[in-house]
Design a protein around this nucleic acid. Structure first.
Lengths: 334, 334
DNA sequence: TTGAAAGCGCTAACAT
DNA sequence: ATGTTAGCGCTTTCAA
């Protein structure tokens, strides 16, 4: 039967009071006789009234909603980040609207602007590598935007990052301390900020130890089984074979494990970003606290919503190395 | 400098036309001279106008938004489901608002009602084990609700499920076919629908093969390392030791792998639900298509939004066994 | 082709 | 303690 939803006006008529009195009861405002309140409550119950929050929010100008744009909600990394954001939002009484950009700048743009059109209170974005100038009008109009995991392109804005270069440097230095001199690096596409940063960390640790890096030791690009296999074969044979590898993200670590298993090869290894079962497999990793990344981004957003006008922040979340064996293998005697 | 956002009225004044003309231009409605349109577009650009969709949606009564309530967006299972829902919603031009219930019926209730108060067009819920009668008024008022992964309590409504019992039966039968006669079952809490169903599948496969099930072979409850370890010790020693185990979900499979590794034990094993690296670890699983679960739930929701008034559906998504070795181990000769 | 008026459901500001 | 009026920013209806 699907009657249209009753409004406060309907309730007011049923309870024979004014609309405003209904509003008072619904919102728990003072100044209503217990008797009238009773009548109103009954009318609410019999009609099945539920306040229309979107009308309320239009009037108050508050959406009580934050928007989140990320690459793919199906990816554990982003879902952990999302969880961090959600926890903070919930604590502040806000809902979360999220959308996946599929790493496409066009989709990201549409999504972000759609969320702004819905008048979310603020936006958290895991940006693609592209120009984010289209957000300037929104930001000027008072919509705070916080970038998470990667900085925005072309503009300066609040950003929360993991210590990508520091973590990669620590992992590489750990391998060096273990006696390795030839260390390969397999990373994601250079278009991606985190990939560049981690590579930078690797290079800095190598040069800090005065170790040269052969061209064949570095592979960066969208990781596939084939590319990782090719990279590993290049690194492990040839005239300057490596004795250890650093994997730039957990997808690469997993692929490398597969390939190494297929090749029946063992090599020292440290991976950036932890993953499930890495402990069981004995993989040493540089863990980043993804949920914390989301939490801090959300906290910063609410700080802005609270009126903080200070210059853009750049928060860096430390990483943590977890030794599990693969990073502690010594170079094989040759 | 945070000017308030300009409205259509502001644009109308700036372009020296009526508000309605602005609306026509913004919405691409016909009946505007190219010349006027030009003036309006300029005003829009200089003022930085963006239509307020929430006001628009209040007027049109359409939210172009679907709500999703699940247990924990940080869990890969739910994020895959979420991805399925999001894909369909996006294709239909809708946004997705989601919230995590943390498996708490109270939170679930608040979240679902909050989303309804926002007047989402429809709701997809991964329900906790509780009474969902509180949703009847909403459903009567015309908000379609689809339950995913588990059926609702106390009410009959559209539901999309995996074939839990069928999958568990298939996995168990596979072990039986491999020569096992003593097969243990470690499952989640009986409060959870999927846990009950999978256990039912296990039992039915055992009795179909005329195999008795010793009391010590079955453990059901919230899985922890300790509980899984206790369960395995009980099953593997004693007078009626098992030669194989069936794990009721992927969390349990992973815990079992850890415990077995610590005990230096090998035992045949099939797990319900696939997980990353299960291939590398050679774990045979009953895979469910979680993303498809979300997709189908969303498709059903949009079907209802399209006006379908047929009786509640119950869609069951088949599972698929993936043999990787652990389920193909033969019972050790004793 | 263009515009004025009414109203979506609610709250804010001001009466009474 | 209760009610009236205006209006959030937009669309709808109807008139010019």
């Amino acid at each position: 039967m699907e009657r249209a939803r009753p409004t406060m006006k309907d309730v007011a008529i049923a309870a024979d009071v004014s609309l405003k009195t209904v509003s008072r009861v619904v919102n728990g405002e003072p100044g209503v006789t217990p008797d009238t309140e009773q009548r109103v409550r009954e009318a609410i119950k019999t009609l099945g009234f539920r306040r229309n929050d979107s009308a309320r929010l239009l009037r108050t100008g508050q959406a009580a909603t934050v928007g989140l744009v990320l690459e793919d909600i199906g990816d554990p990394f982003y879902s952990a980040l999302s969880r961090g954001v959600e926890g903070v939002a919930r604590a502040r009484g806000s809902l979360l609207i999220s959308g996946s950009s599929d790493a496409d700048p066009g989709t990201e743009r549409v999504l972000a602007l759609t969320l702004c059109a819905r008048r979310v209170d603020g936006l958290i974005i895991v940006p693609t590598d592209s120009d984010h100038g289209f957000l300037v009008p929104e930001m000027t109009a008072g919509v705070p935007v916080v970038f998470a995991d990667r900085p925005p392109g072309e503009i300066v804005a609040d950003t929360v990052l993991s210590d990508n270069s520091g973590g990669a440097a620590e992992g590489t230095a750990h391998l060096i301390a273990g006696g390795h001199r030839g260390i390969g690096y397999i990373g994601a596409n250079r278009d991606i900020f985190t990939a560049r940063e981690r590579y930078r960390g690797y290079r800095s640790a190598m040069s800090a130890a005065d170790l040269p890096v052969a061209a064949s030791w570095v592979t960066m690009g969208t990781p596939t089984t084939a590319s990782v296999q090719g990279a590993l074969e290049r690194m492990l044979v040839g005239q300057e074979p490596v004795t250890a590898i650093f994997c730039g993200n957990n997808r690469i670590s997993v692929l490398a494990l597969h390939v190494l298993a297929a090749l029946r090869q063992t090599v020292a290894m440290v991976g950036f970003d932890d993953f499930e079962l890495a402990d069981l497999l004995g993989v040493t990793v540089i863990a980043q606290d993804t949920e914390e990344l989301g939490r801090q981004a959300a906290e910063l957003l609410f700080q802005r919503l609270g009126g903080d006008k200070s210059p853009p922040h750049r928060i860096v979340i430390p990483t943590r190395m977890i030794g599990r064996g693969s990073g502690e293998l010594r170079p094989a005697a040759r």
